[in-house]
Write a protein that binds this DNA or RNA. Sequence first.
DNA 1: TCTCATATTTAGAATTATTCTAAGGTGTTG
DNA 2: CAACACCTTAGAATAATTCTAAATATGAGA
Lengths: 146, 146
Amino acid sequence: MKTVTQDRPYSQTLTRLREAGLRPTRQRLALGRLLFDGGDRHVTAEALHEEAQAAGVSVSLATVYNTLHQFTEAHLLREVVVDSARTYFDTNVSDHHHFFLENSGSLMDIDGNKIAITGLPQAPDGTDVARVDVIVRLQGTPRAAE
Amino acid sequence: MKTVTQDRPYSQTLTRLREAGLRPTRQRLALGRLLFDGGDRHVTAEALHEEAQAAGVSVSLATVYNTLHQFTEAHLLREVVVDSARTYFDTNVSDHHHFFLENSGSLMDIDGNKIAITGLPQAPDGTDVARVDVIVRLQGTPRAAE
DNA sequence: TCTCATATTTAGAATTATTCTAAGGTGTTG
DNA sequence: CAACACCTTAGAATAATTCTAAATATGAGA
């Protein structure tokens, strides 16, 4: 008896796209699968594009950009601003923060429940806090870790 | 009796440049004065360039970039990464964090002594914490504030 | 299944911030 | 004030991202 998961490798992504009101095109399914099958990931547009090529998925860089932005609007991804040179997209959309390895340009999640920030001043009148980002910038190379 | 400050408007910047081992050229003095005479500031290269032009200081955009980077290396400025579209430089180099007004693209300091972050996981083996940045992203427009 | 309106993809041009290059100008030191 | 290393600069070059407009694919309905 075959497992259901093997029969429907795209199912998770398909459902996510449907729920987001995005047509499940070949490109979006393939990119969605690369992004969501497996653990949490941090990607740049260029990196995802190369990964798609390597996986034999033909998709233009423009579409990678479009898709990443659409996924972000649909809250399937979120943008992480850590480096003014490039934009990172994070598949973990829950409350969390980041370690940023400045040498390699890679990111690691810090669970949002684990840390607490106290003493934050009130937001100015007329404004609302959209989000609080904590970025721990690291120097050096981690031993035996991704 | 004239005040000393009036007689030597550049003195502070001159001293800072000397201490940083940077030649006090016309451009660096002028940009330094724009940056450091007055309270804490957050500027982009483009904005500082325009400001210099408006003040009648002839300086190229390339020099503005060079100078901002040299000042940053000399710890007279620090870079703030909040927006992937442009780089901000902050004249406040003491321990602090930021409110970022996403509508206007402006920054406000949050005193580093006022806030505390607890529960941060250890940095991975082989790495050191270079800095912790907290960015509070705000939506909306503050009433009567810069 | 076929058709059609609409959404999507795409190549390539355009944009934008930033960096580079190489040539001429300036500050400092002896 | 000569000499040299450091600076500035115009303009070209780069790199990430967005735009454009034309071609293609999708989903709904007959």
